[in-house]
Write a protein that binds this DNA or RNA. Structure first.
Length: 801
RNA sequence: GCCCGGGUGGCGAAAUGGUAAACGUUGCUGACUUAAAAUCAGCUGCCAGAAAUGGCUUGUGGGUUCGAUUCCCACCCUGGGCACCA
């Protein structure tokens, strides 16, 4: 044995080469029988390369995919690159290399790192979002969205990152800061392309009910969509009071303002109205108020605040009364004042609220500060008071009845339309032409792709225009409709475009002439298992679902949802407990681990670290366990191969139990306990010094998805020609699963006092008799009257007195 | 503030109503060795005890049960999502 040690470097290279040469993992165009589509969230190829945290999810899908193949499934398990977008572009700018060159280099590095780990990807299906044959179809989808009225130009103020110098979607913000660079985001009015994701709020929400996803991700998406049901209620303005009438021309009488509330039951307690500074009626009202100068100044100051200041609930609320303007609470009949305050958001609900200080904390704080009246309308028992004919009603009941009489039911969502254009170079050009006569004209589909031009200067301009705007040759084009000179749209698509449909492209990866062959699409979709980080819950996973739902409606996707099962991978932190980052100098490169202890050890270690979806710290000491496990297996195989060994009852039990447990645990992503079971099984094997050919063979099959290289090698040495990757997955033999003799505890009043060894099929009488003889049991029963005997077959026996 | 997780040995953890701590790591002891490494064997939750054994122990307090890490109630701590969203 000592002269034949386990040489991971030689063995792993040998099998990786063999798999590539033999096309072991090439997937058929169409599945022949049962299929499984096992997908990783594809990486963006950053300049830092992979650290050991990245492959954790990839190892999990690979283990799963390999087991499914052995169970007779045709498995689609592809990999690709999400290479457009800010991370790649910022890296390129910083290092003064063209993004295309930087990305190509990074992809080569990533791919080599992945291949060292022995993944069973079908590299024939490799895709890259910056490939014109890929983004041709990203642009094509945009045109389908445009035709359906879901893509539109807007001039509203949007989030602007002063450092990245581009507009951003709400999803790209983190606490009012740019998710990429951390800069405080400003509001900036500019021309934008928007996607009407809000039209799909309800479908995005109801679709969640059909998905067996982790609770946390479902909850995050629900929170993000932010549905709230309530009422819209109209408040009429009253004739202007005298001073107001003197200052302005015209009247407000007959004009009304709508408010949105989730508490229509508290309508009688509404003692004032509040409009947001940006409210549509504000300019009209401004000309009538007595304190015009004061109000105008307030509106101006609100517009100058950053989003963070505006939305900080902890800050004291400010506002100004619109003097001279009064409205009527038609429920209570009261005349109420109208205020403007920036705690009311312009873009949610109607941009105006009915203030009920008695039942809303924010209104209460505001009313206290400005000495506005507070009227309680719901009592301790949740019944209405001070509410006229509704007094005594239950609040829930009153919501409905008051809405019926004074307003109408409405639903609001927090979800905002998707700001879809970026003033940056490194993205898919939006396939639109602007013509003086015909306005916005989509590029005809047969002229796609609109190629991203090669440029010398790709740095952002900061002017609100993309760097593409400076390339006159490219911008100038002919209007597809009238043929006259026209200009190309110069904004590009955001990072998230290419990743919003890539699961479809893998199915027909190398077909430049067709979106996705519908027969193949039907055969492979949906993605059966999708694995990636939880940080994508409200970005990628919402966008991709949105596009997929639309593609489904248009008949290009056969399933309403793209991803059936979703598993989220927990982070691997550095040994110091912090995130792995070049900045902290705590990055562990998988290449080093592979060189030192081998890919199989890395794979087992990462799956064994703890529950898959949980964050764990890397531990250098911890790797030795999995490495020793492989070496012990190697030695046991050496000792067993060629021997004619008979297995003991314990070995047969252990191996059959392992079949059951490893099959179940791998299927449910409980990899850590699957490996623990295999370790226990090997411990039993080792007590016998060697095992039979059958048991070794079964063990190798079970371990193969986790440690494919060493298992291929042992498999080959056992004399099998076909690789382990296509070997049959074992099935447990029930005959060996029940041990003949078992040890159960004997309890007295619920405390363990002895252990007895019994035959599995022993009767209760036998067990009880044996248990009563135990010295320690006799002692603890001590002649007392046993009131009850609890016997759970093959678990325990308990005497109660 | 609202919503969703989680809290178990020195450390990563296992057990989802039935012997708490499997599996791995760390540490200690021993075998082998001139020695070390590797390997193998034993011990390793806390307290008392020479041992047998007894008591305690899954964030805290209560409850249900013959029996609770597991189910129920309240609280504390912690990670995450949303958040002046009316």
């Amino acid at each position: 044995m000592a002269d034949n040690p386990y040489n991971h470097i030689e063995i792993e290279k040998k099998w990786q080469k063999r798999w590539a040469e033999d096309g072991t993992f090439t997937t058929p165009d169409m599945p022949a029988g049962k299929k499984s589509y096992v997908l990783d969230m594809f990486p963006y190829p950053s300049g830092e390369g992979l650290h050991v945290g990245h492959p954790k999810g990839y190892i999990a899908t690979d283990v799963y995919a390999r087991m499914m193949r052995m169970q007779g499934y045709d498995v689609l398990h592809p990999m690709g690159w999400d290479a457009f977008g800010l991370p790649a572009e910022n890296y390129a700018i910083k290092n003064k290399i063209h993004p295309r060159i930087a990305v190509e280099k990074n992809i080569a590095r990533f791919k080599e790192q992945l291949q060292n780990i022995g993944f069973s990807y079908d590299w024939n299906r490799e895709i890259n979002t910056i490939d014109p044959e890929y983004y041709k179809w990203t642009q094509w989808i945009f045109l389908q969205l445009y035709k359906k009225g879901l893509a539109y130009e807007s001039f509203e103020p949007i989030n602007w990152c002063p450092s990245c110098q581009t507009g951003l979607a709400n999803e790209d913000l983190d606490q009012g800061k740019c998710e990429r660079c951390g800069s405080i985001v400003e509001k900036r009015p500019m021309r934008q392309w928007m996607l009407k994701i809000t039209d799909y709020a309800e479908q995005l929400l109801s679709g969640l009910e059909t998905l067996p996803w982790p609770k946390s991700i479902i909850e995050s998406q629900k929170n993000w969509i932010g549905k709230s049901e309530g009422a819209e209620i109209s408040f009429r303005f009253l004739p202007l009071t005298k001073p107001a009438r003197r200052t302005g021309g015209g009247e407000l009488e007959g004009v009304s303002v709508d408010v949105f509330t989730t508490r229509p039951d508290t309508l009688f307690g509404c003692t004032y109205l509040v409009l947001s500074p940006e409210h549509a009626l504000m300019q009209n009202i401004l000309s009538h108020v007595d304190n015009k100068v004061e109000v105008a100044a307030y509106i101006k100051s609100a517009s100058e605040k950053t989003e963070i200041d505006r939305t900080d609930a902890a800050k004291e609320k400010t506002g100004v009364e619109l003097r001279g303007v009064r409205a009527k609470n038609s429920a209570s009949g009261e005349e109420i004042p109208v205020w403007v305050a920036d705690y009311v958001l312009a873009d949610y609900g109607t941009g105006a609220v009915m203030a009920v200080p008695a039942h809303d904390d924010r209104d209460f704080a505001f009313a206290k500060k400005y000495e506005l009246p507070v009227v309680t309308v719901v009592n301790e028992e949740n019944k209405l008071i001070n509410s006229g004919e509704f007094n005594g009603l239950d609040a829930e009941d009153a919501k409905q009845k008051i809405t019926e009489k004074f307003g109408k039911t409405t639903t609001n969502y927090k979800l905002r339309d998707w700001v879809f254009s970026r003033q940056r170079y490194w993205g898919e050009p939006i396939p639109i032409v602007h013509c003086e006569e015909d306005g916005i004209v989509p590029v005809p589909e047969d002229q796609l792709p609109v190629l991203l031009p090669e440029v010398e200067h790709y740095e952002p301009t900061g002017t609100g225009e993309s760097p593409l705007a400076a390339i006159t040759d490219w911008v100038s084009t002919a209007c597809p409709k009238c043929g006259k000179p026209a200009k190309r749209e110069t904004n590009t698509m955001p990072q998230w475009a290419g990743s919003s449909w890539y699961s479809l492209r893998y199915i027909d990866a190398k077909n430049p002439d067709q979106f996705v062959d519908s027969e193949k699409e039907k055969a492979w979709m949906p993605v059966d298992v999708y694995v990636g980080g939880a940080e994508h819950a409200t970005r990628h996973l919402i966008y991709a679902r949105f596009w997929h739902i639309v593609l489904h409606e248009l008949g290009f996707a056969s399933t309403p949802e793209p991803f059936m099962r979703l598993e989220h991978v927990g982070l691997i932190l550095a040994e110091d407990g912090r995130k792995m980052s070049k900045r902290y100098g705590n990055v562990v490169n998988p290449d080093d681990i592979v060189a030192l202890v081998g890919a199989d050890t890395l794979r087992i270690y990462e799956m064994f670290m703890g529950p898959f979806n949980q964050s764990v710290s890397w531990s250098t000491a911890g790797i030795s366990g999995p490495r020793k496990f492989i070496e012990r297996l190697w030695r046991l195989a050496q000792a067993s191969i060629g021997q004619d060994h008979q297995d003991s009852e314990q070995v047969l039990y252990a191996i059959n139990k392992s079949i059951k447990k490893v099959s179940e645990d791998t299927a449910t992503f409980r990899f850590n306990t699957a490996i623990a079971t295999l370790m226990e099984c090997l411990n039993v094997f080792e007590r016998e010094k060697a095992v039979s050919k059958e048991s070794l063979e079964t063990f190798i099959r079970l371990l193969a998805p986790y440690a494919p290289h060493v298992c291929e090698e042992v498999w080959g040495r056992m004399g099998y020609a076909g690789g382990i990757s296509r070997a049959r997955w074992p099935v447990a033999d029930e005959r060996y699963l029940a041990e003949k003799t078992i040890v159960i505890p004997v309890q007295v009043n619920g405390k363990v006092r002895a252990e007895i060894s019994i035959a599995r099929d022993a009767s209760q009488e036998e067990v009880e008799a044996l248990a009563r003889q135990q010295e320690n049991v006799v002692k603890h029963v001590a002649g007392a009257q046993v009131k009850k005997v609890v016997y759970v077959p093959s678990k325990l026996i308990n005497f109660v007195w």
